[in-house]
């Protein structure tokens, strides 16, 4: 392995690491706020990338039907609850978001012919389609069991993952897709060329991380999410509803997931089930951060990315084995630094 290859692999590792970092931040966010270990995060990565690819190929993405179907279900459930509680003022809102919004997106897709749109508009449309699925998934799968143990929530999470992967196959088929690069520009750094897409990935990841930092540190909604993570009862006593916090954190996680998918689709071919492994690598990073620390998770993500890149050179067949075996020393380290058995509530 000469310097050239070392640098190239390092570039790959850092690019992937940036994506894992984004995902691990979303996972830590969702876990601290809702106690859900968000296994389906990877499906949002795949949905984001493949929805964009569908638009570019002039096809209607199946995720549209999922949005419509989930919207109808949420609307039915919430309407029933609102009517039973006599809260008529909620009806308009429920109809607008769960039926009106998907209808508007449908009209936009069928009349707007997005295959001819500029890339940025296609990206926005893909996000507008995939991101609302986050809160809807929370509403349908997790909200009814919000008080259950972490373990039950984890099993639900795995079940949701399974259903979404199955749907992914149904929507997008077994073939993978790759989307065109955001930019053809390239940067010459000494002897290696850094592609435009790599710069896009790194730049957007850093921007997103900075934006999240601002969100949590400066806005009242960001602080409300942190408050829920620190003390759920305390937050509820301030009128910060657990449901609202849950939906908001799922919204952010879905947005981060879908956008990550869109960012890497020009670099790797994305299949309907690719997201799972990508998401799990985010998990290894999140576990390095103890599912609690954002900065340690982000640093862990870079480590995972680099380890993956170098092991794909040395032992490509065992790449996944090596990355997931990393969890063993990590758990050992965590277990040695945790001094007592944690008491579960």
């Amino acid at each position: 392995m000469d310097l050239q290859i070392t640098l190239l692999l390092g570039q790959d590792g850092i690019t992937n690491g940036a994506i894992y970092a984004l995902l691990s931040l979303a996972l830590v966010l969702v876990f601290t706020v809702t106690r859900v270990i968000f296994i389906p995060q990877g499906e949002f990565v795949a949905y984001g990338a493949l929805t964009l690819a569908s638009f570019q190929a002039g096809k209607t993405p199946g995720t549209l039907w999922l949005l419509a179907g989930a919207g109808i279900l949420v609307a039915l459930i919430d309407l029933k609850i609102a009517l039973a509680a006599g809260a008529r003022q909620r009806i308009a809102r429920i109809l607008l978001w769960n039926l009106g919004y998907p209808a508007a997106i449908t009209v936009l897709i069928f009349l707007g012919k997005p295959e001819g749109w500029p890339l940025a508009a296609q990206v926005l449309l893909s996000l507008a389609l995939v991101v609302p699925l986050g809160p809807m998934v929370y509403r349908l799968a997790f909200q009814p069991a919000a008080e259950a143990s972490v373990l039950v929530l984890l099993i639900i999470s795995v079940a949701v993952h399974l259903a979404l992967v199955g749907l992914g196959l149904l929507f997008f088929g077994a073939e993978g897709s790759r989307t065109p690069s955001f930019s053809d520009a390239a940067l010459q750094l000494g002897s290696i060329t850094v592609s435009g897409q790599t710069l896009w990935v790194l730049g957007s990841s850093l921007l997103l991380i900075a934006a999240l930092y601002q969100f949590f540190g400066r806005t009242i909604y960001g602080k409300a999410l942190r408050a829920t993570a620190i003390n759920r009862t305390g937050a509820r006593l301030m009128g910060i509803s657990t449901v609202m916090a849950g939906k908001l954190s799922f919204l952010l996680a879905a947005a981060i997931g879908a956008f990550s998918g869109i960012l890497i689709a020009p670099i790797t071919t994305i299949y309907y089930d690719t997201g799972f492994l990508i998401g799990l690598k985010g998990f290894v990073a999140a576990i390095i951060g103890g599912l609690a620390s954002y900065p340690v998770a982000a640093a862990g993500a870079l480590l995972v990315g680099l380890l993956e890149a170098y092991s794909s050179f040395w032992a490509s067949a065992f790449k996944e084995v090596i990355v997931f075996t990393l969890i063993i020393p990590v758990l050992l380290w965590r277990s040695l630094t945790t001094h007592h058995v944690e008491e579960e509530e």
């Binding site: 143990s149 972490v150 492994l277 065992f318 996944e320 758990l331 965590r334 579960e344």
Partner: peptide, 27 residues
Amino acid sequence: LTLRLSGHYLPLGTIAWGISLYFLFGN
């Protein structure tokens, strides 16, 4: 490794172990 930590580390550890062994069998 996992049982001294809180309850969700065991399932997460077994997910990683499940994937690793599957790829190992295949390769």
